[in-house]
Design a protein around this nucleic acid. Structure first.
Lengths: 209, 209
DNA sequence: ATCGCGTGTGGCAGAGACTGCCACTTTAGG
DNA sequence: CCTAAAGTGGCAGTCTCTGCCACACGCGAT
């Protein structure tokens, strides 16, 4: 019996992901102890049992060992937002979409916390992290813009979307702090509660035709 | 007549700043034409008439030719915010502080616009830019936190301050877009108007327009 | 069993950003 | 004129990341 090429590719993808996860785990362990900038790619590769050349095949950049690929998660949030009822206040739709991400985003364990702590403690990592989240902005802004009445929708959509991403980031960063008892979802609610979008939350009086 | 060592240092600082400005101008010119990533430090240094070694003495990193040092501006915003009356709604204080920055921040000319366009069109620059603005967050958050009533002031302060920085960034980015007619200050007002902070303000009183 | 093919792997060389070190020049003050 | 301090640039080296190439392995087909 010959397994189909498709099945073979699936299998390959699975092993590839497991290797990625292993390397990332080893890397974060090293970073947590000695600092991201004081650990070379060569060391991480050696500790993970692969060559530096292969390391760069699994991770285009060193920072990706900590950050990962936010693309799929961004699509998830976007789809979640698209599925929200149009009558719902905009800000609440965004809150619900990010909340869904937290619910679906896998177990939030000690491992994630360690990654986040390495992330927030290294300047270059934080910047890359934010850059990746700007990718989310590009996914969400068109949808938000379509739901905004009145003029200047593009500008306003960008501000609102970026603010929602800020809420998400701050909530997760707060969650990773040692001693924090609340869950990510509670913290997300706390950050989203800081804002109200006057143009959309109260009454959709403005026309959109 | 011997000039004091202090005066000498001042003089040196002036010439140093002028060299910096010259190099930055040449660099942005090259970036605008060929893209930030496609221009090497060696080329910029040659075009500016200095060695690559000296380039790295003037600019610790290549990106600093575009971004500059936001530290002093951050202090300005912080001091401006500290001088605001405590009874003023928080969000308006922040708006006024950033507005003061725009008023004081020097001529907003075509040169600034070109720099901003290079900045927004290059992913690595965008992230670095935001990272520098996180420095502003560190300056502003303690002051904002002190003015927040209730629990969880630290978390809420971080969200609010980061949102205000987002407003500032989006406004400036929008201003740099070709065809935009409004002034940075008008755009800043437009972005800040997107939010209301329920915990602190009654109703935002629109004063302009 | 052997061949061919696709795929993963690693070594090698090199580009590019950035740093430490050192020798050289310039400048200002004695 | 001499000296000390500061700026400059060359050189070598580190580190991240990429392109190229040879090699090994698994697998279906002959």
């Amino acid at each position: 019996m010959t397994s189909s090429p498709a099945a073979r590719n699936v299998l390959r993808a699975i092993t590839r992901e497991s290797v990625r996860a292993h390397v990332a785990e080893v890397a974060i362990e090293l970073y947590a102890h000695r600092g991201f900038d004081n650990v070379t790619v060569e060391e991480v590769a050696a500790a993970a049992g692969i060559s530096t050349r292969s390391f760069h095949r699994y991770f285009p950049a060193k920072e990706d060992t900590v950050i990962g690929d936010p693309g799929p998660w961004g699509e998830f949030v976007r789809d979640e937002f698209a599925a929200r009822p149009a009558e719902e206040p905009l800000w609440r739709s965004l809150h619900a979409s990010f909340d869904a991400l937290l619910r679906a985003g896998g177990k939030q364990g000690e491992r994630q916390k360690r990654g986040l702590r390495v992330l927030t403690s290294t300047a270059s990592l934080r910047s890359r992290h934010i850059e990746k989240h700007l990718l989310w902005e590009g996914m969400l802004t068109p949808l938000v813009e379509a739901r905004l009445p009145g003029l200047d929708a593009a500008l306003r959509a960008r501000v609102i979307v970026q603010a929602s991403i800020v809420c998400f980031d701050v909530a997760l960063a707060a969650w990773a702090v040692a001693g924090e008892k609340r869950s990510p979802r509670e913290l997300l609610a706390a950050t989203f509660d800081q804002f109200d979008i006057p143009a959309t939350a109260g009454a959709p009086v403005r026309d959109e035709r």
